[in-house]
Amino acid sequence: MISELDELYKQVILDHNKNPRNFGVLNNANSHAKGHNPLCGDQLDLYLIIEDGIIKDVKFNGSGCAISKASASIMTSLIKGKTIDEAKKLFDEFHNLVTSDPEAEIDTSELGKLEVFCGVREFPARIKCASLPWHTLAQAINENSQTELVSTEN
């Protein structure tokens, strides 16, 4: 039987933690948001190039735990090339997943890469770690709020 801990720290997450995709700074970004989780000190900078409603490029930078780093890495891979509306839909799917009842059955066929975050549901203290990049994204793609700090404690 796979333990809850193995569910949380799946190989995919460990891999994204060690070799995060889209890690770095986009100097020509036209959208940027900062995320902060005061509980564990996670800091995240998200840079996007959005043209004609499409996320042309995205990078993230900062320091954080394995869960938040892997989440940012997977999220940036997923949203690159997507429209804003598609990104928002992914945000909703992610949000519904991590906040759902751990006992509830989930149709994993629809989730794709997000499936690795199923294990987070068992760890209430860690949901915020996984959500931080997504909330920072929501902030970045909302207009007129490019430099505001997103905090998981608000």
């Binding site: 333990s3 809850e4 801990l5 949380l8 720290y9 933690n17 060690k18 509980l39 564990c40 000190g41 996670d42 320091s63 954080g64 735990c65 394995a66 869960i67 780093k69 760890f123 203290a125 860690r126 770690c129």
Partner: peptide, 23 residues
Amino acid sequence: DNAHPHDVGTILDREGIAIRTGH
């Protein structure tokens, strides 16, 4: 090395060990 305190705390917790992680 390569392990954020928050991850350390979660893993130790599952072993029954209560430590503090953070600032």
